[in-house]
Nucleic acid binder design. Structure first.
Lengths: 120, 120
DNA sequence: TGCTATAGTATAAAAAAAGGTACTGTAATG
DNA sequence: CATTACAGTACCTTTTTTTATACTATAGCA
């Protein structure tokens, strides 16, 4: 990653934990509090492939943001949940979400403004 | 992007504005307040290519996070600065930064803990 | 016996992001 | 007269990320 700015610029570190096409929405669902099984998550994210879900969950698990519990049953049962540490991401995601909503609104406002001046 | 969750999960939107290998550090430098010329930024980010710097700045400009001012001189002078709107990202980046720093510390703590138990 | 659900893995291919190098025009500088 | 600084663009290659498809084992059910 970055060589310079050892302590000055560390958002990248946080971003690495959040970024990945599906990570935010995985976290969103897990932050609802209820542990979710692999296939439950799959149903909540209809367009994700099994592979991507596995990969992202593994990464989140490695960072101890997500906990993986295996129930030794057949057919297998594996539950994913947010760790207490992972909960510390909650305010960040909340802030990002709010900014995102405002950003979208702003864009739409600009768009309608432009459309108005065009039709004048 | 995501099809589901029209309003529920909007961090992705914010993330899109921040994400890109160099965007966070570009924003970090511009958030210091002083407008920076293209080559000043290049010197601050020694490993970035001209191409990537241009691309990322263009994206930030399109989202009105960064302002680009051309001074019609020869040799050319172009200054980049954070817009007032872009300033609204400041608290987000600050939070991300703080989480990042804590995350690194935590990782190092875990590492030394492991090394200790190994040598026990 | 064949089908379903479960939680994945393996392999290859496609798409997206990033990088590398060369090139542009003009003024000032040595 | 050659070189440097400036702010890029053009073109191509490499790397990374994501997608697509097929496959695994086992129990329960009809």
């Amino acid at each position: 990653m970055q060589k310079k700015n050892p302590v000055q610029c560390q958002f990248v570190v946080a971003l690495d934990s959040i970024v990945g096409k599906w990570k935010p929405i995985i976290l969103y669902h897990l932050l609802q509090g209820k542990p979710l099984r692999f296939n439950e998550l799959r149903r909540l994210l209809p367009d994700i492939t099994q592979r991507m879900l596995t990969l992202h969950l593994r990464e989140l698990e490695q960072e101890e943001i997500v906990k993986r519990v295996i129930y030794p049953q057949i057919p297998p049962k594996v539950e994913y949940s947010i760790t207490e540490y992972g909960m510390s991401l909650s305010p960040i995601l909340e802030t990002l979400h709010q900014w995102g909503v405002a950003h979208i609104e702003r864009k739409q406002l600009k768009k309608t403004e432009n459309e108005q001046t065009e039709t004048d």
